[in-house]
């Protein structure tokens, strides 16, 4: 009765979120005195797969047949459910990533499992029930969910569980499940990924800017600060609504919810909807020319002043710090 963890790869590579979920599964396995089986779907080389053993997987199952090379949630859900059955896994862990959000419910429905999505802590157990804390009300609150069903699926929020090394020796097994043609009736036409940029939901540092930047032409200094920090860029809703920045950068209650180690808010006043999207950031820095801006009330560090003057200086200070 292993814990099954599904690990997502991007073009054959595992990102931090993959190690986060393996590590999360390993912590549950320790508690339950069992082991972790990691399942990878798609074309991933064995030396990449072996990295999963370093975070606690003691068995690695790979599915790399041609028709499953690209992510199709229907087909992947069938493979994960089949693997859960063959591993007799009652607990299935995956990342609550964009793809994970479209996948976890399908897996849960196939297995008639209870699903806790957006989990931010490790679960606790009482008898056969599993209890886990998750975000609710767009980060304005937390909820404790109890899964009473026999089978349990946990979708773990990115950046909420630090990967912990735990060396195991793992054999790689190849699984070649039969795939129903009805699961493959989706054609992936194009994938556009900005490889030079840090992905926002998983970023450890986020540099976010608002109307205080006065116009889209001033964003170069935000990009430079983000580059100096190795950060993702983000923006407030009025900025994406005005078309200064794409919707994919909008952080807040109706945009992307982030929980980085460091969130730097520049020229953002801090409306309640924006705060909801960033409140679980570990450290918040606010730079605003209005000392009364509500954002200062939820910040760890604040600086009052004009963003256009402060940001280039901050970039230089970060570069100087990194050079030391």
């Amino acid at each position: 009765m292993a814990i099954l963890v599904y690990v997502e790869n991007i073009e054959g590579k595992f990102k931090k979120s993959a190690f986060e979920v393996v590590s999360y599964a390993k912590a549950i396995a320790n508690e339950q005195s069992t082991s972790v089986t990691a399942l990878s779907i798609g074309n991933v080389a064995d030396d990449e797969l072996n990295k999963l053993a370093g975070f606690g997987a003691s068995k690695i199952v790979k599915v790399d047949q041609e028709q499953l090379k690209q992510f199709i949630n229907k087909a992947y859900a069938s493979v994960i459910a089949a693997a859960a059955n063959s591993e007799q896994a009652n607990i299935i862990v995956l990342s609550n990533s964009f793809s994970g959000k479209g996948l976890a419910p399908r897996v849960a429905a196939k297995l008639e499992a209870g699903l806790a999505d957006g989990a931010i802590e490790l679960p606790t157990f009482s008898g056969s029930d599993l209890q886990v804390k998750k975000t609710a009300f767009s980060n304005k609150a937390f909820a404790t969910e109890i899964i009473t069903a026999d089978k349990k699926v946990i979708a773990v929020n990115p950046n909420s569980h630090e990967p912990v090394r735990s060396e195991e020796t793992a054999a790689i097994e190849t699984l070649s499940p039969s795939v129903d043609a009805g699961d493959l009736n989706i054609v992936i036409k194009d994938i556009v990924r900005a490889t030079d940029k840090v992905s926002l939901p998983e970023a450890e540092i986020v540099v976010s800017a608002g109307r205080g930047m006065k116009g889209p032409e001033n964003w170069a200094i935000i990009e430079e600060l983000a580059a100096a920090l190795g950060a993702a860029t983000a923006c407030s809703k009025p900025v994406s609504d005005a078309g200064w920045r794409p919707h994919s950068e909008h952080v807040g209650q109706t945009g992307i919810v982030v929980s980085p180690n460091l969130y730097i808010a520049i020229g953002i006043s801090g409306a309640i909807q924006h705060l909801a999207g960033v409140s679980s950031s570990k450290t918040i820095v606010v730079i605003n020319k209005d000392p009364e801006a509500p954002f200062f009330k939820v910040a760890d560090y604040g600086m009052v002043g004009d963003a256009l003057e402060i940001v280039p200086k901050l970039t230089a200070a970060v570069q100087a710090h990194k050079a030391n």
Partner: peptide, 23 residues
């Protein structure tokens, strides 16, 4: 029923903001 919510919590308030003068 496969799962239930047993309780809700509000996030803990953050400490006082530390204002700084230079970068």
């Amino acid at each position: 029923t496969l799962s239930t919510i047993s309780k809700y919590e509000s996030p803990a308030p953050r400490g006082q903001v530390a204002m700084v003068d230079d970068v």
